[in-house]
Simulated assay, not measured.
Amino acid sequence: MKCPYCSAPDSKVVNSRPSDDGASIRRRRECLNCARRFTTYERAQLEPLMVVKRSGPREAFNPDKLLRGLVLATEKRPVDQDALRAFAYGFEDEVGQSEIAATEIGKRAMTFLRPLDDVAYIRFASVYRDFDSLERFIEEIQGLKKDEEG
């Protein structure tokens, strides 16, 4: 495994353990060149989940991309980062099909964030739904209030 710090080609495994309820292996590695440590995750890849983008092309699902969006939405919020990681890396297993629309990924992520944190939900929704005006933003917040009250 190539070191993310110095790009040396060799590292040794210091510790391995199951992760994500046995769906992956977490490996703690040490670079043989710079001696820094880093973590890798290994998981079986049978058939990649394909994401159908809004403009039509298809690309392989990347859980890191989903996790990055979730982390940005929850920045400085009291949300468990392990829950975000479990959602992103378990997403492919939960879908149960070989293809999914990018819009469906966004909907599922919003459904996941909604009970965790309203601010994170609004942040994610503002990017996912591409709010183009203050009025649209206010409508979404009012929808949250209505759901809370009733």
Rank of each mutant, 00 (worst) to 15 (best):
2 K>E: 14
2 K>S: 11
2 K>R: 14
3 C>R: 00
3 C>Q: 02
4 P>G: 08
5 Y>P: 02
5 Y>K: 06
6 C>Y: 04
8 A>Y: 11
10 D>M: 04
11 S>Q: 04
12 K>H: 15
14 V>P: 09
15 N>H: 14
16 S>Q: 13
19 S>C: 09
19 S>R: 02
20 D>I: 11
21 D>W: 10
21 D>V: 13
22 G>M: 07
24 S>M: 12
26 R>V: 07
27 R>L: 04
30 E>A: 10
33 N>T: 06
34 C>N: 08
35 A>V: 04
39 T>Q: 07
39 T>C: 05
40 T>W: 01
43 R>V: 04
43 R>W: 03
44 A>I: 15
44 A>Q: 06
44 A>D: 09
46 L>F: 15
48 P>K: 12
49 L>N: 02
49 L>A: 06
53 K>G: 06
53 K>V: 11
53 K>A: 09
55 S>P: 04
58 R>D: 11
58 R>T: 13
60 A>L: 03
62 N>R: 04
63 P>S: 07
64 D>A: 15
66 L>G: 03
66 L>R: 01
67 L>H: 03
71 V>Y: 02
73 A>F: 02
76 K>W: 05
76 K>L: 10
83 A>V: 09
83 A>M: 11
84 L>F: 00
85 R>M: 05
87 F>S: 11
88 A>G: 05
91 F>C: 09
93 D>T: 09
93 D>S: 10
95 V>I: 14
98 S>F: 09
99 E>F: 09
101 A>P: 05
104 E>D: 07
110 M>P: 00
112 F>I: 05
113 L>V: 00
119 V>I: 15
120 A>G: 05
121 Y>C: 03
123 R>T: 09
123 R>K: 03
123 R>C: 11
127 V>S: 10
129 R>F: 11
130 D>W: 08
132 D>G: 10
134 L>S: 09
141 I>V: 14
143 G>C: 07
143 G>Q: 07
147 D>E: 14
147 D>C: 04
148 E>R: 06
150 G>I: 15
150 G>V: 15
